[in-house]
């Protein structure tokens, strides 16, 4: 019955400006709960989602960093971050709260070409 697909979710938005970043993670968690093979790519302002030490109580929002730290428990281990986007923002992997693989633009193109479905947030 079930068909396993390779899903790529590209997260391009900073975390607290609108609901899209959270929606994307909810899709990832749900898809994974239904046995789909989920990869996440953080690119552009999406890399801000990964920043350590988010304390969103100050704006009465759910803590996006906490949700991201649940990815491993949901079996989502393919987490990529756009190396150029990190550099542009003077960030390094040390600043990030989950273990990610940093990828070049050519590796990103390959991710896009090799998956079955792309969701862009």
């Amino acid at each position: 019955m079930s068909v396993q697909k390779n899903l790529l979710l590209i997260c391009r938005k900073a975390p607290y400006g609108n609901a899209l970043p959270r929606e994307a993670i909810d899709i990832a968690l749900a898809a994974s709960a239904f046995d789909q093979n989920v990869s996440l790519l953080f690119s552009g302002d999406g890399v801000w989602q990964l920043l350590k030490q988010q304390k969103s109580d100050s704006i009465n929002s759910k803590n996006h960093g906490k949700v991201l730290s649940a990815l491993a428990l949901y079996g989502i281990e393919n987490i990529y971050v756009d190396n150029d986007s990190l550099k542009q923002r003077n960030l390094s992997k040390d600043n990030l709260l989950v273990d990610t693989k940093s990828v070049t633009i050519n590796e990103i193109k390959a991710l896009c070409n090799n998956c079955d479905t792309i969701f862009n947030f």
Partner: peptide, 14 residues
């Protein structure tokens, strides 16, 4: 810890 109600599998892992 995660601000999330877990589905079955992550709960079992946890």
């Amino acid at each position: 810890q995660f601000e999330l109600s877990p589905a079955m599998r992550p709960l079992v892992k946890y």
